[in-house]
Computed example of a mutant assay.
Amino acid sequence: MPKTRIAELRKREILTHLHELIVQEGLEGASMTKVAKRMEVNSSLLFHYFPTKDAALSALINQLLEHYERHFVPMLEGQPDAGARFSKVLEALFSPEWDALTEGRVFYSCYPLIFREAEIKRRFQQLFAQFHAHLVQELERARQHGLIKVEDPALAAHLIISMVEGINFYENILSAPELVEAQYAAFRRLVMQALRAGVV
């Protein structure tokens, strides 16, 4: 096996263990030493691939972006018509499954790092830019089919993303599934009403 392929596999293995540690112990408890212990290797091996923990976190965020790309776009393929497709978009965005798709626990654990690490902030910006671009595309498609009356799809996409992030953040605090589901349903109705009325 080529050395580059071996290195790529090793990096993914490191990131998998780092991801699991963040889920189990939080960002502060997920040290590279603990990752090495889980892998039963010397810590120096990890730093050969990632010189710092922040470098590993940056790569992990990039992995979240890849995960989003692999699942969000294919999820919409094969929808029978424009109406069903757009309904699927809203159902996906305002649902517990979306938080799972974007790896909410890891995502929000890494979020504070944008205030001190420029590279990690850039990775987050890249992820949201991809999300925004896909959402604008879906809004424009829905508008072309007469489903909504949005004047500015780019602005509408920013507002929807703000709502999605807000409710997901709140959901992780509440830990009350029955209340959260009611909120998701209410948000779906409100967003659709606003888009149909051409508020944005």
Score class of each variant (00 low, 15 high):
Leu15Thr: 01
Phe107Met: 02
Leu9Gln: 10
Ile120Gln: 02
Ser87Val: 05
Pro51Ala: 13
Ala92Asp: 07
Ala82Tyr: 10
Glu69His: 14
Glu103Gln: 14
Glu28Trp: 06
Leu46Tyr: 03
Ile114Asn: 00
Leu76Pro: 08
Glu13Asp: 11
Pro80Val: 03
Lys37His: 12
Glu91Asn: 11
Ile61Asn: 06
Phe107Thr: 14
Tyr108Asp: 13
Lys37Met: 11
Glu91Ser: 05
Lys11Ile: 11
Ser44Asp: 10
Glu103Val: 15
Phe94Ile: 09
Ser87Met: 08
Glu119Leu: 06
Leu90Tyr: 00
Glu119Asp: 05
Leu9Lys: 08
Glu119Ile: 06
His19Met: 01
Ser95Ile: 09
Tyr108Ser: 12
His48Asp: 15
Glu117Ala: 10
Val106Arg: 00
Glu40Ser: 14
Gln63Leu: 09
Ala118Asp: 12
Pro96Asn: 03
Ala118Thr: 04
Ile22Trp: 02
Arg122Glu: 15
Met32Gly: 04
Gly78Pro: 02
Ala30Arg: 00
Glu40Asn: 05
Gln79Arg: 12
Glu66Pro: 04
Asp99Leu: 15
Ile61Ser: 03
Asp99Ser: 13
Arg70Glu: 10
Ala82Leu: 07
Thr16Trp: 12
Thr16Tyr: 14
His48Gly: 14
Arg105Phe: 11
Leu9His: 02
Tyr68Thr: 05
Ala84Leu: 10
Arg10Gln: 04
Tyr68His: 13
Lys34Leu: 15
Leu45Cys: 09
Gln24Leu: 13
Phe115Glu: 12
Gly29Asn: 06
Thr16Glu: 13
Ala36Asp: 11
Leu9Val: 05
Ser87Arg: 07
Ser44Lys: 08
Ala82Gly: 03
Asp54Thr: 00
Arg85Trp: 14
Arg122Val: 09
Val89Ala: 07
Ile120Phe: 01
Asn42Glu: 10
Glu103Thr: 09
Glu66Arg: 08
Ala56Lys: 05
Thr4Trp: 01
Pro51Phe: 01
Ser44Met: 04
Gln63Pro: 04
Leu101Thr: 04
Asp99His: 09
Leu45Trp: 02
